[in-house]
Structures are given as C-alpha cells and as structure tokens.
Design a binder for these strands. Structure first.
Lengths: 339, 339
DNA sequence: CTGAAAGCGCTAACAA
DNA sequence: TTGTTAGCGCTTTCAG
C-alpha cells in the first residue's frame, strides 16, 4: 500500500515561486528579484535560484505578477478587425504584431464579421483581460461609448466620429472618385458599382466617391450594395452585365467585389472595364491586368500601432486623425474602352 | 485652495468589486454572484448591483478572477504561425478563431518568421500568460521539449516528431510527387524546383516528393531552395529559365514560390508549365489558369482547434496525428507540353 | 543583500 | 439569501 507521500503539490499544478524558493533554500522575494532581473542579489544566490527554476520548470504567472504591480500593465494589446482571414486585415495584423513585438507586447485578436453583438462581446472580453490598448476596425462607434474607459484605443479604417480616439483613415471618397473618373475619361458613361454593407463607413465613402465622379449620369439601377463575399458580388455583377442596358465598366469597392467582378466579366461580360479598390496578389498577371486603387494595410497597421503605443506611453494630447493615401495603379483593366 | 476630497480611489484606477459593493450597499460576494450569473441572489438585490455596475462602469478583472478559481483556466488559447500576414495562415487563424469563439475562448497570436529565438520567446510569453492551449506551426520540436508542461499543445502543418503532442498534417511528399508526376505525364523531363528553407519540414517533404517523381532524371542544378519570398523565388526562377539548359516546367512548393514562378515565366519563360503547392485567389483567371495542389487551411485550423479543445476538456488519450488531403486542381498551367 | 508581512481583485468555503 | 474569512501567486514595503 503506497501512501503516495508528498504528492500534495507536485501532483499536477505548476510550480510556484514558493516551490522554487524552498528548492533553492531562499525566500520568495529573492526568487522574485532573480526572475525580474536579479538586481541586488548575490551572484551565487542568484545562480542557485536559477538552477531551481530550471530544475522545476518554473514559469512566472504573469497574471499574478500583474495584479500586484504598480500600474498593473498587462503588456497585451488587442486587435479587432472585420475578418482576420481576409488578406487585407491579415497584412494589417502582421504590421501591428511587429510593432507590438518591438515594444514587448503580445497581441490578442478577434473578428467582428461586422456583427455589433460580437464586437461588444469581444471588447468586453478584451477589457476584462485588461489589455493595455485596443486597435479596432469598428463596426460602429456605439459599442465604444465609454466602454473601454481606461484603455487606450485607436481606430483603423473607420473614423472616431466625435469619440476622443485616434484614427487612421484613407480618403476613400476621393480615391473612389478618382478611380471612377479614370473610367469616365476612358469613355465610360454606364459604370456598375459593387459595394459592401451600407452600414460600413468605407462602403458609404466609396459609393459617395462614385456618385461624385459619375455626376448627372448616376443611375441607381447600376448600383449593387450589401455584398459580403466574392460569390454574391459575382452574382450581382452577372445580373448587371446580363441586363437590358449593361454597364460598360465595373467599379468594385473592395477585394471581394473585385474578385466577383473579374469572374463575372470573364464569364459573361467580355471587354467590360474593371477598376477595383484594394489590391490582389498577381493582379498584374490577370488578363487584362487589374487597375486598382491600392491602400497599404501594412502602413495602416504600423501607423495605428505607433499611435497606440504613444498613448500607452503616456501621450495625452488631443486625439488625432491620420489620413493615408490610396494609389491609382494603372495596369490595363481600367483602360479598356466601351464597345 | 481646493483640498480635493475623496479623490483617493476614484482618481484613475478602475472600480473594483469593493466599489460596486459599497455603491450598492451589499457585500462583495453578492456582487461576485451577480457578475457570475446571479444564481442565489434576490432579484431586487441583483438589480441594485447591476445598476451600480452600470453606473460605475465596472468590469470584471479576469486575471484576478482566474487567479482564485479552482483549476484557474484563463480561457485563452494562443496561435503560433510562420507569418500571420500570409493568407494561408490567416485563413487558418480565422478557422481557429471561430472554433475558439464557439468554446468561449479568446485567441492570442504570434508569428515566428521561422526564427527559433522568436518562437521560444513567444512560447514563453504565452505560457507566462497561462494560456490553456497552444496551436502552433513549430519551426522545430526543440523549443517544445517540456517547455509548456501543463498546457495543451497541438501542432499544425508539421509533425510532433516523437513529442506527445497532437498534429494535423498534410502528406506533402505524396502530394508533391503527384503534382510532379502530372508534369512528367505531360512530357516534361526537366522540371525546376522552387522551395522554401530546407529547415522547414514541409519543404523537405515536398522536395522528397519531387525526387520521388523525377527519379533518375533528378538534376540538382534544377533545384533552388532557401527561398523566403516571392521576389527571391522569381529571381531563382529567372536564373533557371535563363540557363543553358532551362527547365520546361516549374514546380513551386508554396504560394510565394508560385507567385515568383508565374512572374518569371511571364517575363522570360513563355510556354513553361507550372504546378504550385497551395492555392492563390483568382488562380483560375491567370493565363494560363494555374494548376495547383490545394491544401485546405480552414479545415486544418478547424481540426487543430477541435483536437485542442478536446484536450482542454480533459481528453487524455494517446496523441494523435490527423492527415488531411491535398487536392490536385487541374486548370491549365500544368498541362502545357514542352517545347 | 535578504526575508517577513501585507495586500492586489477576486472567489471558495464556510457561517449566519 | 447574504456576509465573513482565507488565500490564489505575486510584488510592495519595510525591517533586519
């Protein structure tokens, strides 16, 4: 009959500082000092502690450490995007991660899928975890009113709308107008529009830019909104191209719309011109090569992260808005002429 | 001279349960009960507490809560990939997030960039934060020996190599061999190979598959490895195509290599056949459409997450290895004949 | 240079 | 139904 001696604490829970202290024959404070840099500890003592740490496989409990600390910083930021699986947001996430890493921070992420309930849940989860900062592509400013008080927040891709929050934006209205004007200059009078949910600020901006550029020629029959993926965009484009008076050009307001437009044109709209917002890998190798208004997600992510860390580091200046450019990249699909 | 009364705690630190309890005229335990579902609290009392919570903007400190709980679960998992900005890993991340969300978990992420030091730092950071689980594309099994003891771990895309860890894999050797054989069947005898770092397991597997398929015809002069991005892959492909005895086909071992191959073929290798590993958006609209061996990153992510949550939920069965298929998608570029 | 005591914000186990 | 006491793992404070 084995009495299983001293199995009490070694059983399954991880070693604590107390365990390390006992193993090294010192007090917990000494262990704490060694773990946190070892200043003011005799080298030989520190060595004994480190040996015990290694032997027991001890790892600091960051939550406990944080709890007792002065201005308990969690050294975690969170990133909230529409959908992390979308390459545009993935590129932005990569840039944010790099910047966070440079500051010694870890990154949490979440995808809202443009669902406000989901966004609220995620913000609550992040806040409960006491993230030091939050970079978000907000579905709306509503879920943000007061909610994360005490947490630094920076918006990307969408404006703060009066909230005292920094924002990194692109002037999508001007950019879209430029892209559509480009089509007009190439002789197009009937230009179809494929856009995302009207609830999304960027979608509204881009549609506004489209209207600015087409002016009098605006025809609601050519506008399709509320498209959430490439398949529905393709379907909408096919309908447009198959109508009695089809457009001679298509303006696609984001990557997903562009993919749908390219597919529809290939299937049933030979010769239709296309200009897309954002950019796609190998867009220059399509036939014809794709003309786009390219935003720079890496620049957007880096800028947002820099603003956030400035706030975390104590910047208390009034909230700022940084506007980044979108570039018209002329490749071919937007220079096709009608007929 | 304002004496600034009772500014002590309201100054900047966030309200605690004590504050809420005082405001509602109850004990902290009652607040705790209400926050955690409110079972066993008189509705009228609960209502008063909720009112105070709303008024003070109280938010649970998850770290403190976790610290005191039974099997203190953090309800956080971490995802470690090569590079989150890579659409393949972004898609995988999206799938992992969905699964995590279904289980009420939040997700931390990090990119190793195939750097073992960085990987070790990230694993340490995640472990210190006491994540309940870790899904990783490991650069190597070495940083994982014993390190995250007590944390559930699942590998994706690369094997556990003897470590008692679940793994979700694709048989890249067989798949690559099938793709290269496809080229051989279409008359190619000289097939160039573009591959990533030899240190990466999948890269070695795919090269092995290439060797299996070319057999006697293997020529080291046609093999380029250690390529880390599309630009270097394009450069390598251009060199291959510009050599004295250029290959008539190119096998690209991942998306980045494929992009480089397509560019190089367009620039200086008209007619060269191409088969790529993984898949690219609009690959079917390139000229010629791209023939690929497609893996399913969403399926990989979902499977890995399911395995992880099974472990977190207490599954103690021996570690498993799940092998997912790669599909040959015939579109055109791989069916070009030499010459 | 080192350790003991107190307590961060919260919940488990009890008592009322 | 509610409150009290203890203590999670750690760092602060202060005494040796």
């Amino acid at each position: 009959m084995n009495r299983e001696p001293e199995l009490a604490r070694s059983k399954s829970s991880r070693p604590t500082m107390r365990d390390v202290a006992d193993a090294a024959g010192v007090g917990v404070m000494t262990v704490s000092r060694v773990i946190n840099g070892g200043a003011g500890v005799r080298p030989s003592t520190a060595e004994r502690v480190r040996e015990a740490v290694g032997r027991l496989g001890y790892q600091l409990n960051h939550a406990a450490s944080t709890l007792r600390r002065r201005h308990h910083a969690s050294m975690v930021i969170a990133l909230l995007v529409d959908d992390i699986a979308n390459p545009f947001y993935a590129a932005l996430a990569g840039a944010v991660e790099e910047e966070a890493r440079a500051h010694g921070f870890t990154v949490l992420f979440g995808s809202t899928k443009e669902d406000q309930v989901r966004e609220r849940e995620l913000v609550a989860a992040f806040t409960a975890r006491r993230v030091d900062g939050l970079i978000a592509v907000p579905t709306d400013t509503e879920p943000w009113r007061g909610a994360p008080a005490g947490t630094a927040v920076v918006f990307v891709d969408r404006p703060a709308n009066g909230l005292p929050v920094d924002a990194v934006l692109v002037d999508g209205r001007t950019a879209a107008a430029r892209g559509v004007a480009h089509l007009v200059e190439h002789g197009h009078a009937r230009i179809g529009y494929l856009g995302d949910l009207e609830s999304i600020w960027t979608a509204r901006q881009r549609l506004q830019g489209y209207r600015d550029a087409v002016g009098e020629a605006f025809d609601p029959a050519l506008v399709r909104q509320g498209l959430r993926d490439a398949a529905s965009a393709e379907q909408a484009a096919r309908e447009l191209l198959g109508s009695a008076r089809p457009p001679t050009a298509l303006f696609a307001a984001n990557d997903l719309m562009t993919i749908g437009a390219v597919r529809a044109v290939a299937a049933c709209g030979a010769g239709t011109a296309v200009v897309g917002f954002d950019d796609i890998v190998l867009a220059d190798r399509l036939s014809p090569p794709l003309t786009v208004l390219a935003q720079d997600p890496v620049e957007m992510g880096t800028t947002a992260a820099r603003l956030l860390f400035a706030r975390i580091d104590g910047d208390e200046s009034p909230s700022r808005e940084v506007v980044l450019p979108a570039t018209l990249v002329v490749r071919g699909s937007g220079e096709r002429r009608p007929g």
